[in-house]
Nucleic acid binder design. Sequence first.
DNA 1: CGTCTTTATATGTTGAACATATTATACTAC
DNA 2: GTAGTATAATATGTTCAACATATAAAGACG
Lengths: 221, 221
Amino acid sequence: MIAANKKTALTLADDVENLLLDYMRRNHLSAGDSLPKEEELVERLQVSRHIVREGLSRLKALGLIESRRRRGMVMQHPGLFMGLKKLAKAELIPDSGLRDLLEMRVTIELGMCVYIYQRKTPVQIDRLRRFAGLPEQYTQPKELEIAFHTELVKIAGNAAVNQFSDILAVVFEPIISHRKLEGRTSTHQDICDTLESGSLADFRRTMEIHLAPYTEKPLII
Amino acid sequence: MIAANKKTALTLADDVENLLLDYMRRNHLSAGDSLPKEEELVERLQVSRHIVREGLSRLKALGLIESRRRRGMVMQHPGLFMGLKKLAKAELIPDSGLRDLLEMRVTIELGMCVYIYQRKTPVQIDRLRRFAGLPEQYTQPKELEIAFHTELVKIAGNAAVNQFSDILAVVFEPIISHRKLEGRTSTHQDICDTLESGSLADFRRTMEIHLAPYTEKPLII
DNA sequence: CGTCTTTATATGTTGAACATATTATACTAC
DNA sequence: GTAGTATAATATGTTCAACATATAAAGACG
């Protein structure tokens, strides 16, 4: 198990990127704080302004900072899945990745049933019902299916899961097989009903039935 | 609900980043393919080389490409969670985010029980046992706890989940409360045993008991 | 045919300069 | 003194023109 197949020698911009990340960590910077200005970084790191800007640019790509003229580079609340978001939007995730992500997404929803049930409020259920039974609002039934589940999982109130779920909502449409969904025996209406007035066990069972087409063996495509 | 609080006018580097992503999508580029060389991009996009390099640098930050001297920019299989990985390594995820991620991670493991059980092999179980009962290999019991669960979830064979789980393994150690784990009634050995020779229901119940400290109400810290 | 040398090429790095938006300051008017 | 406006200062945005360097490809040589 020899260590390095890594030929790629570290470039100066790579170093700057890491040094900036390290600077943020050491100084416990959080959203709203600013980084030293480019000129100062040039002096402290002893590299050209160009390289500094490349390093900063990478932090922008990660959604960590935003640059504002005359104010400098200010930190943002980092989106946990910014990279995934860009990959998804650019449709650069290979099919194998999409399948894994779909399995992951469905698994999360199933596992989150407990929290959804625990943390539900009447308002949220009302809101959810709007996505449950009004297909005429959407041209494609698939979109309705996705929107409903995106909304459902939001009830659990887990911010990380919500970001994840929102991003994925865009990319699943093409890989969901409509035929597989037709045979199921529990509807979105049923889910709303059991969530509102059933037991946790009822709700979970309804969800399991509803998601069965996704969890069965040869997973779509 | 007025639309735009977005003051940040798009910079040229932003455009280049998006154009490059779009170029990859349109041409169905995947790992191994190369992008046009910088000089060519300069001509086609009519911006300075510096700007082109900034755009390319951002794709590097996302792990989408790697630059090799004299060969150009070649695409990599994109890590789905490259952004999260960098945030985690730099310890830039706020505590609220870590809590959500831990809940997400535990939820996934619980939901993945079915697949773990379905896809297990004797070899994997043997490997898992190495992390189950040999605390002397680790200085901190917490590290053992994390390593075991990281290994366990790998049996499901979901690449996306594996990446996610590997990244998170590094950051959870500080936020896991050791005291809460002490009272539980199912051990890593029990998990191995039921996975090997119990029913799916047995395995799932053992997992639920084991993960109970994580799923109980006031989630750590 | 294989090994070494040379050359061409794409990325890596630097410097100096100018453009531009926006904050901060100074100034005017009421 | 406060409000509104003109002015200057400042940090980021952009460009151009070089030179450095690693390395893949071509050529020379045994």
